[in-house]
Computed example of a mutant assay.
Amino acid sequence: MYRSGTVMAWNVFRFCTALRGLGSIMILLVLGVVGVTYYAVVLTSYGPSLVSGSGILDALIALAVLVLFHCLLVMLLWSYFSVVFTDPGSVPPNWKPDLDEERSDTDPLTTSEFGASPADSTNPRVRFCKKCNQLKPPRCHHCSVCGRCVLKMDHHCVWVVNCVGALNYKYFLLFLFYTFLETTLVTLALLPQFIAFFSDGEIPGTPGTLATTFLAFVFNLAFALSVLGFLIMHISLVAGNTTTIEAYEKKTTPKWRYDLGRKRNFEQVFGLDKQHWFIPSYSEEDLRRMPALHGLEYPSKPELESQEF
């Protein structure tokens, strides 16, 4: 038994290490695409148009493209590295719920209510992780890659070498949002040069700059289309106040206890302060008055508080 458990743990470790290594490659891939795109848009196409003095209209268009490109790039990278370096939320040591959220009463849960052996308990009101050997807060799930329970876990993303959970889900959504805007802008900005590849006229530039422009267009078009799909999916999840994992779990549940209406569902992720909605951070006031942003407590519909998913 001991040997089998050791082999299993070793295999899981290899699996996790492989995924983490893949994630590091993905970060380099993202930075590589950003570098190729920057070279094609700024150094090859619109930078020279701005300084060449070819015409006032061309200079104004180039200036508008470059300003918008850099603004979106800053927001994209800020959101991206916020997801990478922000812990998605872990269960505090020896955490126990203060209230029985499933019964919505005011009586503290006692040790006896958890059962003598939580791992073997049949009490449906208490969620317990046998892998971490600890109680699990509402909406918390175990990540096999990270090897721990993550608060309001959505998924483990190899692109950011991190889990997406309660504390960085907003940053992930902003990363998708700004990535879509940036890649769409680049696709439209490089479209004339891409069309010129298939024309009979002479195309200015060296073979290296032409190849870079072509690759930048193809990469950004592919990213724009793929990110659009993810963005639409996560917008629907936010509207229903669910995560990717919960979207599958609640298929057997006719009503979702955490669905508070689209406006309040949105606020559960982005906060109440409108000035912070489009930046990867929260205001101190929101963090103080909204427990849901910390990942341990979530408001629910009173009539559905006894519902389990």
Rank of each mutant, 00 (worst) to 15 (best):
V218Q: 07
L72P: 00
W256Q: 04
L43F: 13
V33N: 10
S4C: 14
Q134F: 07
F278I: 11
E297Y: 13
K136L: 09
D58P: 11
A216K: 00
T111K: 12
R125Q: 13
E249P: 09
R264T: 04
S54E: 14
A222I: 13
D105Q: 10
M153S: 11
T111H: 12
C157E: 07
H156E: 03
T243D: 01
R257S: 07
S199V: 09
L191E: 08
L272P: 01
V186G: 00
Y298H: 06
H155Q: 08
Y169F: 11
R262Q: 14
A196D: 05
I235P: 09
L181I: 04
V150M: 02
Y248N: 11
G47P: 01
L181T: 05
F15G: 05
G21D: 05
A40N: 03
T111D: 13
F219E: 02
G205A: 08
K250G: 08
Y39I: 13
G261V: 05
V42N: 04
Y282M: 04
E202T: 13
L72D: 00
F15Q: 10
D200V: 15
F85W: 10
M153L: 09
T44Y: 11
Y38P: 10
K274V: 07
V126C: 08
I203Q: 15
L287F: 06
D154H: 02
L60P: 01
R289F: 10
L109W: 10
G32M: 13
P93F: 09
D105R: 05
S199D: 14
G32S: 14
V91G: 06
T184P: 04
C143V: 06
V42W: 12
G5F: 14
C146P: 01
H70F: 11
L28A: 07
G201F: 06
L173P: 01
H294T: 08
A292C: 15
Y2T: 14
S82N: 13
F177T: 01
L231R: 06
L167H: 06
W159D: 09
I56S: 15
S82G: 08
G147T: 04
V65A: 06
R14S: 05
P137W: 00
T37K: 03
E102T: 13
L60A: 13
S283Q: 08
L31S: 12
G208P: 09
K152G: 01
C16G: 15
D58F: 13
D98S: 15
V150F: 00
C16S: 15
T213Y: 02
C132P: 01
C129E: 03
S90F: 08
V227C: 03
N162E: 06
G295S: 07
S54F: 07
D273I: 02
W277A: 03
G23Y: 00
V158K: 08
F278N: 12
K255P: 10
V269N: 07
N11C: 15
C129D: 02
L228P: 00
N11L: 15
